[in-house]
Design a protein around this nucleic acid. Sequence first.
DNA 1: AATGAATGAGCCTTCATTCAT
DNA 2: AATGAATGAAGGCTCATTCAT
Lengths: 183, 183, 183, 183
Amino acid sequence: MTDKRLRADAARNRARVLRVAYETFAEEGAGVPIDEIARRAGVGAGTIYRHFPTKESLFQAIVADRLRQVVEHTREQAAADPGEGLFAFLFHLAEQGATDLGLTEAFAGVGVDLATSLPEAEREFTDLMTGLLARAQRAGTVRRDVDVDDVRTLIVGLQAMRRFRGERADRLYPMIRAGLAPR
Amino acid sequence: MTDKRLRADAARNRARVLRVAYETFAEEGAGVPIDEIARRAGVGAGTIYRHFPTKESLFQAIVADRLRQVVEHTREQAAADPGEGLFAFLFHLAEQGATDLGLTEAFAGVGVDLATSLPEAEREFTDLMTGLLARAQRAGTVRRDVDVDDVRTLIVGLQAMRRFRGERADRLYPMIRAGLAPR
Amino acid sequence: MTDKRLRADAARNRARVLRVAYETFAEEGAGVPIDEIARRAGVGAGTIYRHFPTKESLFQAIVADRLRQVVEHTREQAAADPGEGLFAFLFHLAEQGATDLGLTEAFAGVGVDLATSLPEAEREFTDLMTGLLARAQRAGTVRRDVDVDDVRTLIVGLQAMRRFRGERADRLYPMIRAGLAPR
Amino acid sequence: MTDKRLRADAARNRARVLRVAYETFAEEGAGVPIDEIARRAGVGAGTIYRHFPTKESLFQAIVADRLRQVVEHTREQAAADPGEGLFAFLFHLAEQGATDLGLTEAFAGVGVDLATSLPEAEREFTDLMTGLLARAQRAGTVRRDVDVDDVRTLIVGLQAMRRFRGERADRLYPMIRAGLAPR
DNA sequence: AATGAATGAGCCTTCATTCAT
DNA sequence: AATGAATGAAGGCTCATTCAT
């Protein structure tokens, strides 16, 4: 047990790095220098490399975390209203992407290929979308000819808009809803 | 006289650089090394810097050019069908963005702020959108509560989707149309 | 009392580090990271630094150990056949060097100067060579004009060859023998 | 023609880098930082990378040059006395290696694998050795059971000795000669 | 006294920009 | 005016050594 746990200080640092890296990637995207993250976290660059073997792995770790959070959040909400689940999910993701350039880039395939680098998270995420989509279609809020791939594409678009325009982009949500509705 | 000849050479070079830089930024994004552009254009890197003081200014010049082209292209088409003009414009831009990462980035505000750096092109562009939107609304194909800002936001979203998914994203066009239609 | 227990622990650790460091330097050469040695020894890097102030000092300690072993091994064998003693010694060292890059480097003066850093071991080693050489010369298997310095030089050459070519290099032993024989 | 030639200043710099890199590798071995070479050459590190894509390629270029020189030098000498050619070659190489750690390392396979990275130079070199050896054996100065591989191994040994002991190591040359002589 | 986490200098390499030719 | 060579500041990553636990 003890051997598996990190030392208190290391755990603290690792958490700190993760948190700061999250914020930094969110603000600056995957291209931000690792030194910048180290500086903001108040640690040496070597410390980051102790916890994550490459910059990419750090980015992945964060994206994985974020995906997990989104999945969890969505599962909690989804039960309620099958017709609304997919929309809630889409708009939630749009908001996440708005404050998180890293996540946006991950979805858009910049700097990582989710399917390759985080196959498990990717699968879970896809399963979630599949379920939400099917339920919405059964509930009659979404057209039958929409597939999971379209949903993924919409996410990329919504995040781009939300990032570009902030809350102002929310004005477009009703139109997305209308656009997806059966004719 | 000699001046004129030389200027003609320079002008040809400038045009050549612009064209190649456009292609290169389109293919590789704004991150491509200036040397790569010089190589493809068959000129020295110094020649590029004679015409454009920084890499960023070259990028801006290209975006300005592209905007002008889009404006022109749109003006030619628009007359025909007022109800369709805005959609044709949106989907045309989406396709442009798909093959032109530079343009996408410019619209999304990555690396340039159009309003600041190219105020004239920006104004022209805005005027165009205003006109198209108004005509579509008058023709009854677009909801009254959509404004120019929404259109701009949509462009960003559409380009992101088109870039992400290629032609497959076109499947979403009808839904955009439906989403914008008056209830 | 407690002191003694602790010292015993420490001594055991020191011995363990020495043994593992020997193996590791032998396999990987002096360039191997100290962390790798720590890992293999199952101790923290700090523990190594408790016993040896620098990486270099660890390396020296190992070389000293190895020299002592060689001296011991040689003394045990040497008595038997005075004419063969020097050759046995040379070829034994060549083989040691083959599996021990550290030792080779030490002899060749890479990273340490034996005479300066380990004067005692150096002296003992020199005495040994002097004895072996004199006996071989008296026995008539080695030319009179060879001196201790030549022997040292030969060791370096033999180790280099053995390291370079492995057992295949043994083919050259008879020629060494012939080359050293009186005309 | 002109396009293939380097500009005068570039050629000068390239030559300068090669010369300084040769000296530096000779003194310090393949492990020396590229910045050190740049500093000694009075150029920026980038300049070296303009001429050589990687540090390894620079090292290889130098080794290739040195091999070529050795081959040329040997060819000029060899004609004279078939019985002496191989020895002249061996001792010449020993001397070269003495002042050139880079070359020694290349022969010993440190930092490069000649057969892989410079196959042509390697082949030429092997052909040369084969010829010299055959002639020496025909002339009766070298045992029949020595092969090219042994020669290569001897080179490594001789260079190690020469490097270790400087001119003093020359004392061993007659013994090498005697060792290789037919019984 | 042991641990292993943190540090930070140093390494190789890239690239925007400047400058000699 | 054009060329492309030179510069030098980053950037990602490693590792000897120090230090908090």
